[in-house]
């Protein structure tokens, strides 16, 4: 489906070390427009670090990142311009606690994009509508459930019109009964053609939404391919074991 689409994100040979430990040992992949790339891997394998190296919240020691033909790494000029176009959704939401849901979504539009308040408000409201939270627009994060918080944070990312959104375990901090509503939103984004990189342990979601799954272990890509390739026909015994374990641990989700 995405065969002939242009490349949105290109990551080449990313290395990162913290002191003695080399967390990323040369990771490369590309993401085409409209593609959903799912990254899986054991805890501590470097998934979060990899996502952060993409939008330069962490500066990689080596390697390059391109966003739509422009290099993001090694730039002298403003990284903030790129970050606007790379949405990020965090495991623990990181909503701005002193702002209502609506203000959380509009603040980037006003402060970063310089949109006027009225337009920003309208846009923010529409994004909340899109994630099913129009009634919660004026509530503060502390008044929302975990699932609602994460949907606000997705709306916040969407409002910026990003070229790609990075999700770092968006459902890992949620009570089991709230996971579904968030996955539903992300799934709909995938269907609507949003380009996404999703780190997750939700195998049901990965199987049904991913165009490609990347299995990372010890800072390296061990296996990658379509869900079919990985689940049915993995190259490595490790991949099979990991998938088995993770499916046991997190159970199969309903839509399987």
């Amino acid at each position: 489906m995405q065969e002939d689409q242009p490349i949105v994100l290109k990551i080449e040979n990313i290395h990162k070390r913290y002191g003695e430990t080399e967390v990323l040992k040369g990771v490369s992949f590309t993401v085409k427009r409209g593609e959903t790339k799912v990254i899986i891997g054991p805890s501590g394998s470097g998934k979060s670090t990899l996502l952060r190296c993409i939008n330069q919240l962490t500066i990689p020691d080596q390697g390059r990142v391109w966003l739509e033909d422009e290099e993001v790494t090694h730039i002298k000029k403003d990284i903030n311009l790129f970050r606007q176009k790379i949405g990020m959704v965090f495991q623990d939401f990181n909503l701005f606690d002193h702002l209502t849901a609506l203000r959380n979504v509009e603040i980037g539009l006003i402060k970063v994009k310089g949109m006027n308040k009225k337009q920003a408000r309208e846009r923010a409201y529409n994004e909340l509508l899109r994630v099913g939270l129009k009634d919660q627009a004026n509530l503060y994060p502390a008044q929302l459930s975990g699932g609602q918080k994460q949907r606000v944070s997705i709306a916040r990312a969407l409002a910026m019109d990003p070229s790609v959104i990075l999700f770092d375990e968006p459902t890992s901090a949620l009570d089991p009964e709230l996971i579904g509503e968030v996955l539903e939103v992300i799934k709909n984004l995938a269907l609507s053609g949003m380009t996404m990189v999703v780190v997750t342990h939700e195998m049901g979601f990965a199987r049904s939404v991913a165009n490609e799954i990347i299995f990372i272990e010890n800072g390296m890509i061990l296996d990658q391919g379509s869900p079919y390739d990985l689940f049915i026909n993995p190259k490595h015994e490790r991949t099979k074991k990991f998938l088995y374990k993770i499916t046991e641990l997190y159970g199969k989700s309903k839509d399987e």
Binding site: L57, N80, R83, F96, I107, K111, V112, R156
Partner: peptide
């Protein structure tokens, strides 16, 4: 650090993040 990371990931500068996100909460 999550508040700063989220601000930066929206494209705010560090100063914008401090002024709009960090200080209003820290002062409270």
């Amino acid at each position: 650090e999550g508040q700063m990371l989220a601000s930066l990931s929206l494209g705010m500068s560090k100063i914008q993040a401090i002024w709009n996100i960090i200080l209003p909460q820290a002062i409270r």
